[in-house]
Nucleic acid binder design. Structure first.
Lengths: 338, 338
DNA sequence: TTGTCCGGTGGGAACGTTCCCAAACGGCGA
DNA sequence: TCGCCGTTTGGGAACGTTCCCACCGGACAA
């Protein structure tokens, strides 16, 4: 039964006894169609089980009704990082409402990078969502030059020109550090993310400013930088303990790294939270299940996802629409590690 | 500079002083082109920065070079379930090699389901990958009827007709139960997944057969069924303890549910593994971080992903290719919960 | 020389839409 | 009755490719 030729708009027109154009108008919800014609067309469509061919439509409208979500994954973090999954969820929810397809592009190496730009050049998508951008990543600029609507989750730097949505990283870090100080901690170290990312720098800045404002030390010896992986967190914790044996608290820039830090602390026999308090960032699933459960800064990741999607659809709909910069609030979730 | 009209194949032809067809041939790597013509075309392409329009190509070839990965998500499991992320990773890796785009479709409700079938009917994809199929899901049959190449991760039932890849669920469960028995456990209960899924039934069957073969009880009172969520695992554990207070081991059909079970056991003051041993399934990130770390059955999820993608590409390339049924081995990972 | 073949080439048609425009239709006022 | 206007309609062209086929020219055998 699957062998039958798919009906085209012509078939429908013939069946309904009208012209191609009228069918097209009905499909696209134009008002300039008589009720009679509309009824005939709708009936024909139903009988023939007609579905418009979106490729043909795309050729003439030069719209594909699909957008790309680009996730650079050199660190192979999708998988361990629930962050990406949550973004995907949010994006998908927002897109579903607009009947836009989601093309997922995991970019691991240069070859895949080239493929991505080519695919974009082929105009297979109407716009691009970029997640986890690094400061000197050429991709955002490239997309901007091509004139393709682009929205970032995060930003390259504080003066990012492209539309973007991110959470209040500095503020979240400040809350975390204040919390630790309020619990009487004196020496608050930090494990930061890769410093070529604004997320990492902003969280570090929040840590530093809060400590300085409170009259505490916030020098570089209290900073170890990880790469947002568990192993990275472990190594950073090790070097911190060595560097600053007297530390009694650590603010870690992600839950996954914090989990690594916990492993190292346990290995070294330092009690959490008795001897060392730990606060993470993200409130990912791992935070609830680590040992002990992790105090952490929750960020509205799914909302970030749906918001970048919304903004992108807006820019696709109206290329002249102004660029938007959105900062979403974070929230401290206190558990047993602090 | 982005304002310039994109060059078409005609522009290139004119520039190179050849016909459209010759340009097309060069692009598609045909042998029937003289070296001279080929060189001229390639030069023109480079000068003009020409990229073929894939939509136009798709219209005539009726190929889109993209496939859909469908993830039903009524249980909102992407996010908590690293399983899906790993599948996505595997699929993406395999597709990258074939220059095929990946359309991600999260299907939460009926509306999104309809959108999916419509999108498929519009021929926006060359094939479909289906993850986490339930026994009476109409979708696989629908796709089969439409004649669209379809490959499943998992299967509807043991006599699945569509191509599919799954791990040795019964075998994995058997290994887990044998392990528990070897540790001297006598009353091995189980928390199964939703019984309208073959994964769940197979794991349950592995549990049952192993116990029976060893001469142990394997009756229904030892079975509680969850829904692959943490809360479900918690509730199931609660009912098991009530039903079978003397149990000294539980085989749980997923790590996420096992994490829930651990929470409940702790709440009830039952030591793990001293009083109750727990074994999960998946070896997801949560297994390493639960308290205590979880003994679990590892399944090669990423490999499942890349394999379904491979098989799908094969079926798209040759619709007559035989259906394939692949079972991948599992492996027990012993940690501290057993 | 003539005929045959074959590598190389390019123009026309087709894919299934949307958009532009001209034309048909009907009603209404003069 | 005629002319005008607004609503509704449909045919032609276009979007940028690929595919089919016919053609061209040179090499080679007869």
């Amino acid at each position: 039964m699957g062998g039958r030729q798919r009906p085209t708009i012509k078939t429908v027109a013939a069946r309904a006894g009208v012209g191609r154009t009228t069918v097209s108008r009905v499909i696209n919800g134009s008002e300039l169609v008589s009720d009679k014609a509309r009824a005939a067309v709708l009936a024909a469509i139903a009988e023939l089980n007609y579905v418009p061919n979106s490729v043909a439509r795309g050729l003439v409208t030069s719209r594909t009704n699909s957008v790309a979500l680009v996730i650079p994954e050199s660190e192979s973090r999708l998988g361990s990082e629930p962050y990406f999954s949550a973004v995907i969820r949010g994006v998908s929810t927002a897109l579903a409402e607009t009947r836009t397809q989601l093309q997922l592009m995991l970019v691991r190496d240069q070859a895949e990078r080239d493929q991505l730009t080519e695919s974009v050049a082929e105009r297979r998508v109407d716009g691009v969502l970029l997640v986890s951008v690094h400061e000197h990543d050429p991709l955002p600029g490239l997309l901007e030059d091509m004139g393709l609507p682009t929205v970032l989750a995060g930003r390259r730097s504080p003066d990012e020109s492209l539309s973007h949505v991110h959470s209040d990283n500095a503020g979240g870090a400040a809350t975390a550090v204040s919390h630790l100080l309020a619990r009487g901690r004196r020496t608050v170290a930090t494990i930061s993310g890769p410093l070529d990312m604004d997320v990492a720098r902003s969280r570090l800045q929040g840590w530093r400013e809060t400590l300085e404002k409170a009259g505490h030390e916030a020098t570089d010896r209290l900073v170890a930088s990880g790469d947002f992986t568990e192993e990275g967190g472990e190594a950073a914790m090790r070097s911190l303990i060595e560097q600053v044996p007297e530390l009694d608290a650590v603010f870690v820039a992600s839950d996954v790294m914090a989990a690594g830090a916990l492993v190292e602390l346990r290995r070294q026999g330092r009690g959490v939270p008795d001897e060392v308090a730990v606060v993470g960032f993200d409130d990912s699933i791992i935070a609830r299940h680590s040992n002990p459960p992790l105090t952490t800064v929750r960020q509205p990741v799914e909302e970030i996802g749906s918001m970048i999607a919304h903004i992108l659809m807006e820019e696709i709909g109206d290329p002249e629409s102004p660029r938007r910069h959105v900062t979403l609030p974070t929230e401290l979730v206190v558990r047993e590690s602090s």
